[in-house]
């Protein structure tokens, strides 16, 4: 298993994947480590209408294309991992994942983006999918003609 890279990118959203593509095209050995599904917040987006050159696309489709592009340029991508240790001092940086595998590189790029905040109330996790929903386009039809409470007041909530 290869463990030495020129660059390790932490985060596999659009920013991490873009950095990966540019690095791989510049013949840098690049490893992308991502906590969840590759694509980051775009995976959570029903429709993207402002990506230049693409009129309309599902977020997950765009994410899949970006992932394939990055892989085709030569990036190694590991998703659904957890960073268990990070050593950024010195010339060689070290990143350990899942408390077992360790990787080193001359540079580490952090592209960890953003994430939505859960309510953090007791029972939230237990009732996820059984009354608590985070995606109107996914689960809206289960709640037809029912009374619902929307928490939040941003664009998604409106």
């Amino acid at each position: 298993m290869k463990t030495d890279y020129d660059v390790i990118i932490i985060g596999g959203g659009p920013a991490g994947l873009t950095a990966g593509m540019y690095l791989a095209r510049a013949k840098m050995n690049t490893l992308i480590l991502n906590q969840g599904a590759v694509g980051g917040q775009t995976v959570l987006t029903h429709e993207i209408a402002n990506y230049p050159g693409v009129e309309n696309i599902n977020g997950f489709q765009l994410a899949r294309i970006m992932k394939t592009q990055a892989k085709n340029f030569g990036c190694t991508i590991k998703s659904n991992i957890k960073i268990s240790n990070l050593q950024l001092e010195g010339n060689i940086k070290k990143v350990e994942i899942n408390n077992k595998n360790s990787y080193s590189a001359k540079a580490v790029i952090l592209a960890t983006g953003g994430r939505s905040r859960a309510l953090g109330v007791p029972g939230e996790n237990d009732f996820k999918g059984q009354g608590i929903s985070y995606c109107a386009t996914c689960d809206g039809d289960f709640f037809q003609d029912k009374e619902i409470i929307v928490v939040g007041g941003g664009n998604s909530a409106l």
Partner: peptide, 9 residues
Amino acid sequence: GRMGPMCVP
């Protein structure tokens, strides 16, 4: 599921 945000992951 569907090809949606909660299913794809």
